[in-house]
Design a protein around this nucleic acid. Structure first.
Lengths: 244, 244
DNA sequence: TGGGGTCGTTGCTGTAAATCAATGTCGCCG
DNA sequence: CGGCGACATTGATTTACAGCAACGACCCCA
């Protein structure tokens, strides 16, 4: 695990993060966004910023999870493993996303860093107590859970009833929207920090099918494949495939 | 729509349902289960019991949803439709299940009755106001949303990474557990009120594959197919297929 | 009692995607 | 600079499941 000394404060009692949070690009989107100044200060006291290098494990299926996280920088993949090694990625967490909603039950999943990642980490218990004392936060959590649930249902449609091309078109446009929300502006170039295998495991395909389908879409002039991403060339046709 | 006069009170201002709720078999499992007497009385005031015959539509993707529901009797299917008619069932709601968690966003889904159904219906706005005034309820809703989310993730693994036999085995055992929780006792006979097409649309298969796979499982003496259900003959082997 | 409708089963055939295998590309490090 | 390893691409082949079609079981109602 890499420690970036500038912001890793785990060795201190709690976060001295006035600056960190003030400048946080993810704040408005994150669970923090709903809070008044006073309540926010209370939450900051619980916050421990932590950095992970690419491939680091945030938590896994087996061990009980003692923390919840908000992603500040980087991309995290969330996935489940079957005993024989098959993997289903249930989501990619981008800056602003909160990890810890579905951790209550015995049902677990794994989370590891796709890129280098910075998170705000909270003790599960402390965070839970805090939430119980702040109905505003409870409400916010419920709204986020509701939103996650809606996304999960979309993903079920995608996994159960769409072919490879539709899956990839939806995936690309969905990611484009999420990046736009984070950066504040829509870009025709979609960053794909995750590898082909990750995309395959997210869409319920194999790596070969992802590769073939993307390259066919490129041949059909729907997209151009660039290093670590794709460029959308025909947004209209892509959208019509995605929602078909 | 069928009105069972004994309990349909929609024409009254609100529910005169002391008896109904007291005898409610779903109460402990439902959203009501978390409430103290006083808070519960407040919720009862908002309650409108309604009956639907099989196939009745509770709500659909297009129209904004003005109510939330708790299923008391019967089975409801929740699904999304693609423009070309493909259908993905995202869940079956059994007695005690709450409908209204994922209804906030623009993302909609449809709900209709698989069997004759009785629900407790609440105005969305009234229920929301009530929840905002009762942190206990807010907390309960969040826990339910969290649980739903965990189930949704399980379903993603099933849809994305399991073959037909594994899907069916998981489905049957999952339903067996849910019925057991409702009735308080495990039965080797699993009631299947939904048709083959519904099962197919839930598992991301076709009706033919569901039929063939179930009959093969019967030939292999894993199950016996009975009218409106199956009987589990080899639970151990079924479980090992389901969790494979 | 019989006819039509819905639902489920079964066989045959087609196909999208999986699987297997080889090759290509790039970045990293000795 | 050269070679190793991770990742991506591409081709050949297989396969699980879809799609189509016919048939059978059951129920409802005339």
């Amino acid at each position: 695990m890499v420690h970036l000394s500038a912001i890793d404060t785990r060795t201190h009692g709690h976060c001295d993060c006035g600056d960190l949070c003030r400048g946080c690009e993810a704040r408005a989107l994150s669970v923090c966004g709903s809070l008044e100044d006073e309540a926010f200060a209370g939450l900051q006291k619980l916050n421990h910023p932590v950095n992970f290098p690419a491939r680091a494990v945030l938590f896994n299926q087996e061990t009980p999870v003692r923390h919840v996280f908000t992603v500040v920088h980087g991309v995290v993949r969330l996935y489940k493993l079957l005993p024989d090694g098959r993997r289903q990625i249930v989501g990619f967490a981008l800056p602003g996303d909160f990890l810890g909603l579905a951790l209550a039950d015995g049902y677990g999943f794994c989370a590891d860093a796709v890129t280098a990642v910075t998170v705000c980490r909270f003790s599960r218990d402390h965070f839970g107590d805090y939430a119980d004392d702040h109905p505003q936060m409870l409400r916010r959590l419920h709204d986020m859970a509701t939103h996650e649930l809606a996304l999960a249902q979309q993903q079920m449609v995608l996994l159960g009833r769409r072919d490879a091309e539709e899956k990839l078109a939806s995936f690309l446009l969905g990611l484009q929207k999420r990046w736009a929300r984070i950066s504040g502006k829509t870009s025709v170039t979609i960053d794909l920090p995750m590898g082909r295998q990750d995309i395959a495991d997210f869409l319920g395909l194999t790596i070969e099918t992802v590769s073939r389908t993307l390259n066919r879409m490129a041949r059909d002039k729907l997209i151009v494949i660039v290093p670590d991403g794709v460029r959308v060339m025909d947004a209209a046709r892509l959208e019509s495939i995605a929602s078909a």
